[in-house]
Amino acid sequence: MIATLQAFFQTDLGIVVLTLLEALALLVPLLIGVAYLTWFERKVMGAIQLRKGPNVVGPFGLAQPFADAIKMLFKETITPTGADRVLFTLAPMLTFGLAIVAWAVIPVNNHWGIANINVGILYLFAVSSLGVYGIIIAGWASNSKYAFLGALRSAAQMVSYEVSMGFVIVTVLVCVGSLNLNDIVLAQRHIWFAIPLFPLFVIFFISGLAETNRAPFDLAEGESEIVAGFFVEYSAMSFALFFLGEYANMILISAMTTVLFLGGWLSPVPFLPGGVLWFLLKVLLCLFVFVWVRATLPRLRYDQLMALGWKVFLPITLVYLVAVAGVLEYLGWLPNA
């Protein structure tokens, strides 16, 4: 029986089936995680603001995400007049889909990624840079001024912060000598990159906030000025897809931070073995900071946001990249891939 199965998984069809199964094994926990992230956020923010947060539906409000999902499902989908129907429906799917496909290369444990490709980090970067299309298409297709303004803000913001994010990633790559995410984690066996590259770690995380349009960079939504920005016209499931996409992106950025700077699945304690649990713990820590920041910081003004990206982060990352490369070269520590 096992032998036949093994033989089957060697064939073309078998590989496809196996990959689908792997994807399922990753996606189901991921989607549940996304659902409970909303609960987690409300609970944490409640605690920070001395409230209780959701506590009615189920014990500790644990059934709240499902109640929300059911509510969303049964609401009416409204398409505004003058909207570009095809693009209007496509945009939320794109946002959500891209947030999901990025997970294909994330190694949650040693060689546990669905696809262990040798340019994994480029893949991640490419997929996250595509994320802007969901927003910009939604903004345009809604045929609404608020939505369009939100889309423009968000597009400019994401393109700006991607630049410094790219330089941070390049600096990490200089230290690793490989674009493979598995190798990046393994290169941190001795020391997590968050320590020697601390400023970049901070910059990466802040840029991550900007990439996901989270507070204090949520000008694309800006509910006090442009109502809800790019998804002002969306309702029901299409709204839910944007919502889920945003949270999936948060988890993704946290996972990227974990892989690039916090040593992925590696154990911080010398005696304990590494594993998925460590990975989850670190991702959770990052997510907590996401929520913490949202509960604490006020929104930036738009020119401050642009100035921070271009005049602070970009020069720092550029100089740091050159400095890191110089130090590694001088000490002869450059990895030879």
């Binding site: 340019v119 480029l122 893949y123 970067f125 490419a126 840079s129 595509l130 802007v132 991607e162």
Partner: peptide
């Protein structure tokens, strides 16, 4: 991926 990042992104 560079094509995707630079041109598309």
């Amino acid at each position: 991926f560079i094509l995707a990042i630079v041109y598309v992104g």
